[in-house]
Design a protein around this nucleic acid. Structure first.
Lengths: 200, 200, 200, 200
DNA sequence: TATGAATGAGTTTTCATTCAT
DNA sequence: GATGAATGAAAACTCATTCAT
């Protein structure tokens, strides 16, 4: 029971941290804000996490894992390399759209924090790129698509998705993401068609 | 002479600011650092700029203008819509590669500064997207390529370029960008190829 | 214990603030001075008070209330309107003389702080004037003295007392205030005596 | 001619200083404000005055001299000690009312500047008190009034006048001073009348 | 004499972190 | 484990004063 309370507190703090970080950005988020929002205390914060930086990194790592798991799982019951790729694109977009706070944290607030965070961001982006690359490679191995440099393509794809989401998040008008999904998917798929004709 | 000195000082401060911001990021850059690096003084800084935020914004605005001018100029003597687009991709990549500090400032350090900077970043990205969109539209009007949603494509392209540059900048190994230019250009062009027609 | 400690710290800071403000004046008093003098820290200062201005205002308000309470209480067991007035004059002088720091803070340092403090000072003076006016009015209603414009008289009295105290505080020689009490009281009483009457 | 220009500049700076000091108070008044307001420059300021403190003191001294001269002059053609006193009261009130900026500077902004200014303020107040005391003494020597402690009375009078003016200056409603002149004069005269006798 | 750009010590305030209870 | 008062090292910004022109 004690154990459970402890975990509960930790969870409350993490949740509060995500709210506050995604709302104010890393630097403008105060440990005090997180403590207040979590309905615990600064002491509790420092009992569970060694520093502000540490909780941010923990959050980042955990978010990346969850988002990637979500995507992998959604792809799972698709068969055929190209099908999986299409499903991946759709799921990434849907997932990011659904977890807006996490997305903003990951894609916006995690950037520009100075060299100290470069490694973390690099790894986060890399993991998403690897996820994409893995399925691209499968499609190549599979013969579904012509050989292409998978990592560059993966980064380019991630960048394209990122930017469309990013601009949508930042935009004052906040148009619906749904309208953008189809054109974006078409674009990405076109970009891996070997040249004209022969894909398929 | 007076006038010249004043402008010289202002320029020294701006240059120093770019160095420091791109090196440490906005939050870790101290006004003191900029003053020292510029070989002037904190007083001079505040004589020329009302605040740390203001000089950052001034820098951002000026960089966007310069980079876009560079690209436009390089494209100028290319003829034919598709030629221009190819030239644009190459120039954007070359320019960003050449002005690495400016690029990092623009694409990395400007992000994640909190809601206060959202507008600035949004505008910066938007201007690059518009530049791309303009030439895409020309290619469509021209009949060089099939009609596509230009703004989404423009953002996607910018994002793709951004991400590849970004990961290269962040990567510890720092591979040469040149090697990435060709695959990236091919990818982007494929994504708008009228000829690919039969994709799926 | 916690509660007591907190209040103790707050009190220490307020006491230190009174010392420092009355010694150096508002502008020359540093928050650092107050922190040092209070034997706590700058952090403690800002934990208990939102700003330097705020603690000064808190001090002002609290001093006015205490001084007025002191006077009211001293007057209480005097009977007869004129008696009360005499007692009030004596007590005001005695109280101000006794709490020299508070007096200097109230009468000297609170002045000249710019328009931002005008309201506070106005209110402080007004409250003292109202105290005097109340008893003057009682004496009039009572038939003890002829009708006079009470507020003007009250301000004039307060000004007379203020100035005599003020000059004594500022004077390098610092003569005893006691010697001044009698002439001042006589003067004030004469100023409301319908005729020369019975002041003696 | 050169000489005249120099004096003109000095005068412009002094005038500007009076405006700015009486408007913002000593501490909030910037040397920059004075330079701008005077339509000269900071260099000119420091050519004519060694420091901000110095110009304030110069202003103070000059104002005291002018105000006292005004009063003395107005009294001059009154004959009889009591007449002179009445004239003095009226003139002081009229003069202060007329030169509102100077009055605010002298009575409000000069106060609370810290020990560094104590001497100046003390002297300013003292000179006004001496002016009053001189004529009170004449009235005593003259037999017009009974002997009283002239300096205490002089300070008390000055304080009474000061406070009434002060509260009027600070008051948000700013009632006319004229209405207060008569009650105040009556009050002061009563305070020295051995009997109520023939005032007026 | 006058100008105004430059200087830099000084000030308030912030906030991550600690620790006694 | 949790609390929240206390700490103090920063950091942005101010402004009287200087001085080259």
């Amino acid at each position: 029971m004690r154990k459970k309370d402890k975990e509960t507190t930790r969870k409350k703090i993490l949740d509060a941290a995500m709210d506050v970080f995604s709302d104010k950005g890393y630097n403008d988020a105060l440990v005090d804000d997180i403590a207040k929002q979590s309905d615990t205390s600064k002491g509790a914060f420092y009992f569970h996490f060694p520093s502000k930086k540490a909780i941010f990194q923990a959050l980042l790592t955990s978010l990346v894992r969850h988002l990637i798991d979500d995507v992998e799982q959604a792809i799972e019951h698709h068969h055929g390399a190209l099908d999986k790729i299409e499903a991946a694109i759709d799921t990434v977009l849907a997932t990011f759209t659904k977890h807006e706070k996490a997305t903003r944290l990951l894609l916006v607030e995690a950037t520009g924090l100075g060299k100290a965070f470069d490694r973390e961001i690099h790894q986060a982006h890399e993991q998403f790129a690897r996820l994409i690359a893995k399925h691209l490679q499968a499609a190549i191995d599979d013969g579904s698509i012509e050989p292409i440099p998978v990592m560059v393509t993966a980064y380019a794809w991630f960048g394209a998705i990122y930017e469309v989401l990013f601009m949508t998040l930042l935009s004052p008008e906040r148009q619906s993401l749904d309208a953008l999904t189809k054109p974006l998917r078409d674009l990405l798929l076109r970009s891996i068609a070997k040249t004209s004709s022969t894909n398929h």
